[in-house]
Amino acid sequence: MTLTIRDLCVARGGLPVLQGLSFTLAPGQALILRGPNGSGKTTLLRTLAGLQPPLAGQIDGAEEQIAYAAHSDGLKAMLSVRENLTFWADVFGQSDIVPALDAFALMPLIDRLAGTLSAGQKRRLGLARMLVTGRPIWMLDEPTVSLDVDAVAQFAVAVRRHLAAGGMALIATHIDLGLEAEVLDVTPFRATQDTRAGASDEAFL
């Protein structure tokens, strides 16, 4: 089972952002997406996650396989760490949240309300959610924002363990995670001017 992208064109606000993108991701592989702000990394991840349709091209192997982590973690401030994680585990048909808590050192915080956590602790809880999905393809959008050095290391360990178990990961990030992963710079795939005919609003990019 691999994720295959062929000649993909993704759009944001109706305007093409990236075009001609092709790559494959095999079990155990990770791909790091790089590119300046506004180059379309988030749009690409959202398209692959099925949140928006591509303008052109093919995505094979993504259906019901993706665990997506966006900028916001989908946490409820008035639920405890345990309740938040148990909810997502239930939604994805899993039951064991202990490994996820251990991986991100959340055990001491288990009965704290998510609203009282610090930004970095919330992020760790958001990343722990990936482990309870049981999905093979992780798509992470800037996963290390507000994480300290130790937490970034925990995250790298979690990704490495996921890859070793035959998982895949697609990570948009600006920092070096120390993973043995291919790097894909999306800058060369930026949609050219003529495909952006009528594009006057830079804010949409």
Binding site: A67, Y68, G74, V91
Partner: peptide, 11 residues
């Protein structure tokens, strides 16, 4: 808080 995005990608 992003829950809807995540729910939309869930089973």
């Amino acid at each position: 808080d992003g829950t809807l995005d995540l729910l939309a990608t869930s089973p």
